[in-house]
Amino acid sequence: MKTLTPLLVLCAAVFACEHEPDQLFETFVIRAGDHYATGRHAESLQWNVLRFEASFDQTAIYQFDDAGFQDSKNKLMGFSDCNSLHHQNSARFAWQWYHDQLEIYAYCYVNGQRQEAFMGVVQPGEIQRYEIEITNHDYVFRFSDKEVHIARGSTCSVGVYQLLWPYFGGQMPAPHDVSIRIRRF
């Protein structure tokens, strides 16, 4: 009994915890003049689906003086494929403020070649669901009832699939602070 008591207390403390979904949103801020967001951490994918909700706010609206940069894709979230660098094999959602709307893209590197596919439009303030599934042969992007398949490059199957966090650019850094809320689930 002397042994059991601390064990029971320990188990109760450990397994009684439950997170509230609303508390799980993380806010990533890309400071003016920067590319990388605050709040990033080293983490790898642990199963074959990356699923998250994200919401942008008014800070996602921007205009570059040089309009040629306006269609540069900013990265939302994704992962590098098995033991690859992200410019070699990776799959991410990307976004841009273009034509006065916030456009979402599937954005991949496949054997070093960039591939993009338009997925849809999201409103600032709107929470949308995003999903990337890895199959043996392709990445499956799901956003707003739309599904896009992009073939994977030649890569391994067992290895590190590094998570990739919000990044502004392209070449141009954030013109002002940009805030993005993300909740993985």
Binding site: N48, V158, G159
Partner: peptide, 8 residues
């Protein structure tokens, strides 16, 4: 390995 594929 998580799910026999992902190094963690």
């Amino acid at each position: 390995l998580s799910n026999q594929q992902f190094v963690v």
